[in-house]
Design a protein around this nucleic acid. Structure first.
Lengths: 215, 215
DNA sequence: CCCGCGGCTCGACGCCATGTCGAGATGCTC
DNA sequence: GAGCATCTCGACATGGCGTCGAGCCGCGGG
């Protein structure tokens, strides 16, 4: 772990100076690795620079701040997540399948990047850029969910109830929070293997059930 | 707003030196006021000290750090919230009433202290103390909710389903997150006046409904 | 070949925030 | 009015951040 994650082969000859892209990648990798160990405030620009084998001031040639590094990382993960979701939804047959598939991809994203998503959650309050990126993703999920609920209602599979968008907002934030907490252990959570079942049950009951309490 | 929130009457005579308790209160008040304007990282110990009319070093006589101030604030709010919840639940007649009452008190707490709760959310990742306080509260709510669900199931009012505790975990985190986001505007949220209705609908459907999709 | 230029690197500097220390002031109690 | 606990402050040490200007490296053109 110590000799800086850079070291380009250089085909035979002595080590060449790594390219700018290599450096950038090394910084991103270092950041994600360090985030596994401590929260962002515990990581200095110097830590990142050293991890990538460059000096602190050189760091600023690549990124404006450590928050910017996290944002870049987040961009990547968001792109991945969108792609995975689209693929999963395309592969699903029927509504019920689709709900579960979406849930699984969200869980997997948070699981594979727990450190990063935790950092993002923390930066939500402090960084406008992170906030707007996160909001955009959330907005997409919400809109998509709301449309799906409306479709189910239109074809008579789901009963009427609160505005579909309102349900979608609540359900999607629930996913985000519950999964985040559960994979990071920052409070009472669910076992990772139960996440999908439990959340799915809530989604289905919310979407396909009505609030009558009889009996 | 400028002349430091301290100024004890001193009964006629010239201003006496404010007591330690006054100072502490002034610091807490200053902190909550400043948090309305910017996140915690944007507030320096000096800001807090000046707001309370003392020097920066004197601040450290009262608190070990600005995080400690937030923690103290949080302690107060948590105590209030617990009390309000207990009172509300005592006043509720019947289960349905109780669910709504609990929801209302949570919403009100977040609404009256949006700045503070936002700061707490951010510190969740960074401060073990905040994390453990928050977890403790959450754990209480979850345990209480789970017990109530089990009671409803026992008396035949609610059908079987996923473990009550799992549902309780998810529902309570949903509340926290959705309310937080909605009152702070940090992403797609619900209108404040719809919060209770929408969340309640989800709770009721989750607790009293089953996941069968027929029709 | 070597020259120049754009991409890259660094050390040094100034700034700001944090937290600590020791030297006092203040006011209550006996 | 002496003594003590409470409280206050300025000075200092430390450490992170972001900037700047002086250069180094390697490639492509003359």
């Amino acid at each position: 772990m110590s000799e800086a994650l850079t070291d380009v082969p250089g085909r035979g000859r002595r080590p060449r100076r790594p390219s700018g892209d290599d450096r950038e990648r090394a910084l991103l990798a270092t950041a994600e690795a360090l985030l596994e160990q401590r929260p962002l405030d515990g990581i200095s620009v110097d830590d990142l620079a050293r991890g990538a084998g460059i000096s602190r001031s050189t760091f600023y040639f690549y990124f404006a701040s450590k928050e910017a590094v996290v944002l870049a990382l987040l961009d990547r993960v968001v792109a991945e997540a969108r792609a995975a979701r689209t693929a999963a939804l395309a592969g699903a047959t029927g509504a019920r399948d689709a709900w579960r598939a979406a849930l699984v991809t969200v869980r997997d994203t948070f699981r594979e990047h727990r450190a990063l998503t935790a950092a993002a959650t923390q930066l939500l309050a402090a960084s406008p850029e992170v906030r707007s990126l996160w909001s955009a993703v959330m907005e997409d999920f919400v809109a998509e969910t709301a449309a799906a609920i409306d479709a189910e209602r239109a074809r008579g599979a789901a009963p009427a109830g609160p505005p579909a968008r309102d349900l979608a907002v609540a359900l999607n934030w629930m996913n985000e929070r519950v999964i985040q907490v559960s994979v990071s252990g920052a409070g009472p959570g669910l076992a990772e293997e139960d996440l999908v079942e439990v959340l799915l049950a809530i989604w289905l009951r919310t979407i396909y059930g009505s609030d009558r309490i009889d009996r």
